[in-house]
Design a protein around this nucleic acid. Structure first.
Lengths: 197, 197, 197, 197
DNA sequence: AATGAATGAGCGTTCATTCAT
DNA sequence: AATGAATGAACGCTCATTCAT
């Protein structure tokens, strides 16, 4: 390894781990695979991380920090009944999530294991949702935001590729379809809720 | 293990495997664990299944066969605009899926791994969706049904418990919230679609 | 399995075992492989043979019995200095050994393991040699017959195919070369011995 | 095992493996046995060798390299008709091969398996033969050298002990008998060949 | 004579982790 | 900050063998 200082190495380990975890899952990825692909000595991984689990925990922390970071500027205006501006905002959000999709996929995988006690997926969801509106305060809204908002969103970024492969669908087209569908269901019901209230 | 009929043993292996896979994930579950919990000799597992993967594949096949089986009787009447009857139907469907949630969770976990080539999750989704209406034929509808219909549904059955734990929420209450939210978003948008058409 | 009586089954097991043992070696051949190829139930093998070793022992016994059986008729005349008749006799002997080459190969493999106590290869050699002349009585002759007679012969039948593959050589041509070479070395030295005596 | 240099460990593994392979055969030798006798951790074997087969391949490579190494000095003079000097040279060669007999035995065992594709035994033979004279160029000579030269030689070093046990023969005496016999057959036929030519 | 189910021990291999340097 | 060597435990899987029928 070139002598470029430790932080770069640590970062490379994290990047490779993220890629491999999302590719094969956490448990199906061995520390050896990471060392090979990151081209680091095996013992070095244990210099930077106390164990294999610490790697994935670090990845989760990083993404949570990123999400809590600078909010997106609400440059677009939220006009009633949602015009193309809402769709554009959605697409931007999706493209943002797409860049994080690897680690989010891992988070989701892990959260689906019924045994593991606490999962960061809820914290993650809160942060993603907080990017759009104020944090939901009532439980009904919470459910709504999580299951019909957050979940479809990350499912889309996570599964888009496979979905398109399976159904022989263009990826850009897929985005349009999803956005339209998401707007018609989740976003529209927001307005109704507001209208009802 | 005592000499029981072979099919019973095979079934017990599958049941235990399903439970453990959904608890810890496929890769994090060892054949030894299955062995212990199902109280079968390890070699016997390989008498019934060619390898560990064959177990999960068998589970997937089973659930797909079940789903393609007898459709639910539409005892309730589908009145327009959806009253409590729709909610009841939804709850029934959810309780049906809940009984399959373990294996569906495993399927979802595996489908999130970007590497694995083809996943049965789409076939599964088609079948679940086919239980409600005729199979979607256009791509936009496909996206809609999958990402805002199927996905929230299975996410709910899969994550309900953890969600309730995390947010200190009663599980029955959770069901109501979800049903209401699902109806307001996904189902409502169906009607709109129809109205548009 | 067809109900054709036990002896046929036993014979089939032996035939398959011989083939597989010579293909992969005794230890590298599993009882399962034999059952598969012989299409017999696994437990049935233990009905006919007390264990796996008993199979190979049976094979060895069989071949020793065969070799001790009817001697070849010396139809040809043994003229001095050896003309084509000796070569013909040699070719016949080789073709005879070729039919037994599988089990002889196994015997040779096993005899090369330094640990195994007693090997039937010497008994086998004696019998093969006895087919040609009276049993050697003096030790020098014994060495001569075994190492420069028997050994090259069985090495040829055992390795002929691979040798021809490796050196891109026709198999019939190979036979001629070997016969000529064998006659010039081993057989010729017989005569010398006799002349010396 | 104590922390010694890595190469020492690797060497010890190879030595033990060679001994055990020649004792029981490749397949009948378990990695655990090697582990025990070489007093190395099992995982360490896979640190040095990619799998069990890699061990035997390494052994084969090593011996081939050794054989291709420094040729023996032809200190003795090759007088016609072969006097005691030829016998001495033969004995030296045999004692040289005896030191390699373990690995050569393994090579021979493996080459007798009809299934295994390519065997190093021919390469090995070429090198051994090249130690005595220039490499044979015509096919007849090739056959002669291999089947009546190389094969008896290695058969002798490989089987000498068992042969002597079986026939109650002194090992030194055995050497004399073999040398005499080998000279009378293989070597003598060389001269004839030359004379013919 | 023949079978399907079952078994304990061991296989080759890899795991996450730690050591000394 | 980085490395090569080493480790104990466990992995998935197969072995030869036996059971009841």
């Amino acid at each position: 390894m070139t002598r470029t200082g430790g932080d770069k190495t640590r970062k490379r380990i994290l990047e490779v781990a993220e890629e491999l975890f999302s590719k094969n899952g956490f448990h199906a990825t061995s520390v050896n695979q990471i060392t090979r692909q990151a081209k680091v000595n095996k013992a070095l991984i244990y210099y930077y991380f106390k164990d294999k689990n610490d790697i994935v925990v670090s990845l989760f922390q990083n993404i949570l920090e990123e999400l809590s970071g600078p909010k997106p500027d609400p440059s677009g205006q939220e006009s009633g009944r949602g015009g193309t501006d809402i769709r554009e905002a959605l697409k931007e959000e999706i493209s943002f999530l797409e860049r994080k999709k690897n680690i989010i996929s891992v988070m989701l995988m892990e959260s689906l294991k019924t045994h593991d006690q606490d999962t960061p997926i809820f914290k993650c969801a809160e942060m993603v949702m907080a990017r759009e509106h104020e944090r939901p305060k009532t439980k009904p809204v919470l459910f709504h935001e999580f299951f019909t908002g957050f979940i479809p969103l990350i499912a889309f970024v996570a599964l888009r590729e496979k979905f398109c492969d399976y159904y022989q669908c263009d990826k850009e087209e897929a985005l349009s379809f999803f956005v339209k569908s998401f707007k018609a269901s989740h976003i529209n019901s927001h307005i109704e809720c507001k209208e009802e209230a």
